[in-house]
Amino acid sequence: MRLLVSHETVYRFDPPMKGVVQSHRLTPSQFEGQTVIDWSVEVEGATRGAAFRDGAGDWVETVSLLGPVEEVRVIVKGTVETVDLAGVLRGHRETVPPEAYLRPTHATWPDAAVKVLAEEALEGVAQDEILSRAHALAKAVSEAIEYTPGETEATTTAAEALALGRGVCQDHTHALIAVAQASDIPARYVTGYLESGNDGAAHEASHAWAELFVAGLGWIGFDAANKCCPDARYVRLGSGHDAQGAAPIRGVASGMGIEAMEVDVSVVDGDRAAGQSQTQQ
């Protein structure tokens, strides 16, 4: 599948800031499931630098703007050719040991309810069937949290979202990481894009899902919000221990201004778009 991604994030500051520094994880991962045809990340007026590939395999870049900064506009555009690997992150180079993803963060901390959910989900599933256990946990989280925008916040934890029973993809992902880690399965937060098409299901083009580590197979994606594993409709950007660590854009602004943010994302199936344009000839 050929996916056309357009992702624009605008930060406005009032009064203007003295300076802004951002760390970007905005470049698609390198693995067998996706090939970048073209890709650009642009921030007008910014100095770029300090770029490197981190231990998790993500390409990280730094941008800085000297003040007065009224607005930062991050424009991401590109085309990615994807294939369906049933969620398996095949051919991805990284050096972080999977065991390091067993340690919870504040956002993924397992409370008693998390542990109970994990135990119930795994009842009757064999100890050594890690893949089946991962599927069972993802299913349990899908059922425990109803997709409902506007009910949770960026700071909502896995335990809070599970107690509430409602949330968005970030909450599903944190909850899945929490139950997986509680079951001794390494798990992490993944960000990327999703081509949602017109199938009517609840989606967000700027998306997040979890990866669980299954010995023998490696990292496997689970999208509990959409009750599936990532396929050719997904573009993977990067990962972290939780939403904060994996954030595609992390920034710090110095000054006293109030920040407002707008995000506009579209992910289009390039083949279908081409097909539509032909019918208009």
Partner: peptide, 24 residues
């Protein structure tokens, strides 16, 4: 570095870890 570790840190330098990792 608030961009890598605690986002509320006032003691560090934003972006320092990226400069460190890239050999600067």
């Amino acid at each position: 570095d608030p961009l890598c570790f605690r986002p509320d840190s006032m003691l560090g330098v934003a972006g320092l870890m990226n400069v460190y990792r890239s050999g600067g």
